[in-house]
Write a protein that binds this DNA or RNA. Structure first.
Lengths: 195, 195
DNA sequence: GTCTATAGGCAGATAGAC
DNA sequence: GTCTATCTGCCTATAGAC
């Protein structure tokens, strides 16, 4: 049991990650600075280095936390929804939620500046994509078994297509500030798998 | 008629654009510097400012030239190929060629860092996407008329989906350095429109 | 058109006091 | 944990000679 605190503020490291996460998703990793975070948190740049020694460590922590939360969301989808089509629709909903906050998928942004990232971050980005495709492949297998999904090509290829399509739809929709640009593509995609 | 030059080197401005184009497509717009171009061209940074006063002007020139060349490629496709499915396949081939050079679509990269771009560049990125979708919409109409393409949903929605899917497939495939990751998705996409 | 020289700002990062 | 002060390096950009 925890002692009831008079003020229950979240740890500084978490608040740093919150701000940095939003900045990465809207501007890109190299396009935000310690100064941006510091001014928003009302703390000095030097203090940030206490929590994250360098930008590479901060970046890795960002991807790790983002990936863990994404994995948790996928688990919730698995346990809450009855069949593969519902799960895929909920999956596209995760992306739509991100886009509604005028953000891009973190790993989609990082993929665009992949060449400039430190090696530790590169590996984490690929892991994120791999985890997504693994989950999608399982859902596709489930859908085939249920008879609720129909597609040609291997499950891996289709999983790849789903991931790429949603990342690309986000990428193009966000500059227009138009959520329906994304949802129209998501609908097209789901339709092609269920009919 | 042109006088035969002893040495027929292309204008410096074009060579600057060549180098900058490759840098944008591999690293992103804010992730390359005048110094990068200068050292590769064996010229000083100051000289670059003679050709392009500022980075915003350079960026706009990059998108403009890229868009013009893309439009020319689309015209060649229109006049060389007989039907809509062949045109769409050639369209995916344009993307595959870019990816083969380990590059990302320039406007795809710029879309990822859209929030940090000067207004003139933002507008040019959207124009590129719009032009692509306009062309795709015409091809889709042609395919419906010919009876060579079949799809549900509006032509605009499908054109949007094609553009987004290819951009996203590139975005995700490039970090893996695996062209087949792209071509598998392109095949899936074409299949969904012709069957 | 290209050069040298330099300005002015911001980046990530460190030392050491409190 | 947070601060002040500072470092080094790179960025875009400009002035003015050649």
């Amino acid at each position: 049991m925890t002692v009831a605190p008079h003020k229950d503020e979240r740890p500084t490291a978490e608040r740093i990650l919150d701000i940095a996460e939003r900045l990465v998703q809207t501007r890109g990793f190299t396009n935000f600075s310690y100064a941006d975070i510091a001014s928003e948190l009302r703390i000095t740049k030097a203090s940030l280095h206490y929590h994250f020694p360098g930008k590479a460590e901060l970046g890795l922590a960002l991807i790790t936390r983002y990936g863990e939360r994404f994995a948790q969301a996928l688990s919730r989808i698995d346990s809450a929804l009855p069949d593969a089509p519902a799960k895929l629709e909920a999956y596209t909903g995760l992306y739509a939620d991100v886009l509604e906050g005028k953000r891009m998928c973190m790993c989609g942004v990082l993929a665009a500046e992949y060449e400039t990232l430190p090696e530790s971050m590169r590996a984490a980005v690929l892991r994120f994509f791999d985890d997504n495709q693994t989950w999608l492949t399982h859902v596709l297998a489930e859908g085939e078994k249920e008879g609720t999904l129909a597609f040609s090509g291997s499950r891996d290829d289709v999983a790849q297509t789903i991931l790429g399509t949603l990342e690309g739809a986000m990428l193009v929709a966000r500059p227009y500030g138009d959520l329906t640009r994304f949802t129209a593509t998501a609908r097209q995609l789901l339709l092609s798998l269920t009919s």
